[in-house]
Nucleic acid binder design. Structure first.
Lengths: 156, 156
DNA sequence: ATATTTTTTGCATAATTTTGCAGCGGTAAC
DNA sequence: GTTACCGCTGCAAAATTATGCAAAAAATAT
């Protein structure tokens, strides 16, 4: 679900910037940001994100992100073709290309794109599941798809 | 109390060398080592030791000793803004719309935008307080504001 | 498209964790 | 010796968190 990716981002953002002492409290803050879910789901989210509950120096309970965020979630990453796996769609508007990816794969695919399409794309920005790429002047959408077909055969 | 010191050492030794999923389980192992206490006391011990409960790579719950890095808990900035207030401004340039939000609200608002303006926006990328949205070809800024007015009435 | 499989979610409840309170034992001041 | 205080503990209850299950939603295959 699309929602989950952004919800994960919101959870991480909240617990890294504020003191939250319980899941109910975190739920409340998520709700204020427009994410509606139950405590059960949040518990499962925290488990997936490997968030831990611990005590800060003031003796309050707090939630903490893992020190190194390996956010793989056990998907096939290194084995197969991660690039073609990650890719979902591409769409153009003017000098911008918007690439949608599977949740969490945007930045890795953006890296591949940067490398591969240096001649036709001047830069990319990646979110969780979306990449925005700026196309070089006097290059076309066709040039982009051609360049990207090297790493994404399915792009046609 | 001397007993407590030894008990603390035993707790640290156990949770750093074995997988324990609950306090009852840890209690059991402490008992095997000759420490008799109740789960209530253990809970307080763990709080003092700043032990955290988290998830390992196998998806099991485990207890974890603190890393020496005691990271401060960061700013506790406004978390009580109503959601309608997340939006601050929107500005257009060519086929790009830039939305500013209150700090931290960008990704949740981006989610709303993705959902609401599917027909006029082909993709968004969100940072902390800024969203970049790419407008579909032959759609206009007016189309965008109209679509967004559903979720942001103040957008005019 | 339709069908099948997988993932996500809420509900209700179970399991676990936290805490208020009172008692105990030790210590220091009087 | 008595009193006051303080940290530690268990008990019981409250609070919080985790999960089995069924339904809904998405993803994927046909």
């Amino acid at each position: 679900m699309k929602n989950k990716v952004k919800r994960f981002a919101a959870i991480q953002e909240i617990i890294s910037t504020t003191v939250v002492g319980s899941q109910e409290e975190l739920l409340q803050k998520l709700s204020e940001k427009g994410f509606e879910l139950t405590q059960a789901t949040l518990s499962r989210d925290l488990k997936q994100l490997k968030v831990s509950k611990t005590t800060n120096s003031q003796g309050e309970y707090i939630y903490q992100l893992p020190t190194r965020n390996l956010q793989d979630e056990g998907r096939t990453f290194g084995n197969d073709f991660p690039r073609s796996n990650a890719f979902l769609s591409i769409e153009f508007s003017g000098n911008i290309a918007v690439v949608h990816t599977r949740p969490g794969y945007a930045s890795s695919l953006a890296y591949e794109i940067d490398e591969t399409a240096k001649g036709t794309i001047i830069g990319t920005v990646a979110g969780e599941d979306t990449i925005i790429a700026v196309i070089k002047e006097n290059k076309t959408a066709k040039d982009v798809t051609e360049a990207l077909s090297k790493i994404i055969p399915s792009i046609k």
